[in-house]
Design a protein around this nucleic acid. Sequence first.
DNA 1: TCCAAATCTACAATCGATTGGTCAATCCGA
DNA 2: TCGGATTGACCAATCGATTGTAGATTTGGA
Lengths: 355, 355
Amino acid sequence: MKLHSAIKHLGSATMAGGKIRLKDVAERAGVAVNTASTILNRRPNSWASKETEERVFLAAKDLGYRPNRAAVALRSGRFNTVGLLIADLENPFYTHFSRVFGNEVSGRGYDLVIENWQTDLAREKKLLEEVVHRNVDGVVAFVSDLEEHRDFLEHQTKLGFPIVALAMPGIKGAPVDVVVPNFATGLKEAADCLHGLGHRRFCFLAARSEGQRVGGRPAYFREVIQKFGDAEVEVVDCGPSIEEAKSVGRKILEEKDRPSAMVALNDLTAIGVMRAAKDLGLNVPGDVSVVGIDGIPLCEQLQVSLSSVAQPHEAIAGKAVDFLMKRIEGTGDKTPQLAEFSTQFVQRESVGPVS
Amino acid sequence: MKLHSAIKHLGSATMAGGKIRLKDVAERAGVAVNTASTILNRRPNSWASKETEERVFLAAKDLGYRPNRAAVALRSGRFNTVGLLIADLENPFYTHFSRVFGNEVSGRGYDLVIENWQTDLAREKKLLEEVVHRNVDGVVAFVSDLEEHRDFLEHQTKLGFPIVALAMPGIKGAPVDVVVPNFATGLKEAADCLHGLGHRRFCFLAARSEGQRVGGRPAYFREVIQKFGDAEVEVVDCGPSIEEAKSVGRKILEEKDRPSAMVALNDLTAIGVMRAAKDLGLNVPGDVSVVGIDGIPLCEQLQVSLSSVAQPHEAIAGKAVDFLMKRIEGTGDKTPQLAEFSTQFVQRESVGPVS
DNA sequence: TCCAAATCTACAATCGATTGGTCAATCCGA
DNA sequence: TCGGATTGACCAATCGATTGTAGATTTGGA
């Protein structure tokens, strides 16, 4: 059965699916595939004559040629894509961060894959271990507890896979580059402000349990408050959702001797607390002052604008991209780096003097 | 120079980078690569003996083997990834949608790439045309104006690339599957409610200009209001950001004979309007009622909870995934399908009787 | 003893782009 | 007209997984 010639002919025709291969471009331009490849990729010793170049570019444009990314990835070992693992796609802090981050990476010619673990610890671990096997060259990941993932991160580092962790303060000897916000500065400012306004009884709403990227926020706040000598803070367990914050906040505010100021784990939960106050007929800040953490853009647009300990989103995102790109390009420092950014308290309507 | 043997030897050693290839697994298990491949992929005629299977699985596990996704993609022509193109990563409507959508696709074994055009028309067109060349098997895209992209969508359909559009009502003869929300139902309910509460002077905040997925919302609302015979609505141009809504809203509310009810293009801009009212010392809903569109989860958590014409997020996302998967798997209908979902008005605190 | 399942191995092609090496054609100047 | 550039074609290998075909080895049963 000598069907070879027939088969060959079919094989060399433009594919049915309409997918344009480099070969097709080369054929149309009347050059060899190597030539086409060399020209389209503008390789250094591009000896090709102007005329040939034009023919190739024209052919590529006419056919609407796009290199097959799977083939390029296989050959080059690069996907030109990075992964971003965030905690919660519905928390404006993370989405705002993602946006800034996305602009950064696309400016460097990379695509972005976003994955979120929906504030679910089990998912976090699973996703972190999966996302490195996606079509990505590197990963930036928010992690709730770096120690939890130390083994995995170490392993990836050994394999040479670039990972940057966005973690909470108090890390040492991390196996990967780490970027952390320093809440000490912002929380100190917040405490000073509130104390100055006469507040003495505080409540900090945060989970002692894991999974929320709490990272010493309550502990540090308590420390600062206790230094005043005349004030006290109660740390209350609370989940990460607005709903939980609302119901837990309500319980606390219903008490006879309720605190005069509430600090929430993040801005989203602070919104829940404000809503709880409203439901009880309490005024913010007249009856209770509320402070959030993160500094999401929404803060100042709320009916009662929310005071917040703001993280420098842009700086953190920028540094994370920087670290990651250095790793991907192999120009990173030998030892893992640590970058810390201070936070800043922004006072808005939700904070006022004790009545 | 007979270096072949030496080179061969180096070549067959486990790679320096630590990347595990199928070959490595096969070697460790003492089987041929075909056998390993067949077993790991659980192919139908998997004649392999239990014992061999175990050896292969064990070897794969020991080495931490993961198939090279570029190679699999090249060979199979599949990335096992879909793209989602949204308008704004910072609008809770889109992120909530993304989350639901993401859960759907990952349930079907696909990864998700999210891209957003940041309510920027030029970016929208560019991204839509780029995203199909990413590492994806198909794309679901929010489009502000389907006509704008008709040529491109038609072309992709011809090429057999699966695209599903999430558009605004009033489409006919679209070249791709389309899912649309029907705002007629929800807006009618909203209008009835407001009219019943005594409102006669309305303002609809929306851009006549493009880029905002307005899709006849103001026109339909005006139509409904005018049917009452005793009411009127002014449609005012306004950009998509909270800030713009706040400043435009402020101008309108400052007027002597301000409208008693404001309907905003979406929930986010409605929040801006409420803030504008607050800044002017006006009460919501005492002095002015406010209605948003989309039905984001945040609505009910605001200090003054926001009434909204809610889209059925889950249903829309589910249908979009459904359409896309059918196209990817080639089981889709020959002709493009259209799915429409009705919306529903949800009354909350931001709406009250005319004072 | 011999055939036939059962269980694999070996070899090769394929996906599409990249890249190095070799070789052919053309043109210019001497 | 010959020699060296210039320009680019052609062949082959590579990335890693998948898949088809052909053959090899064992085992059991008749």
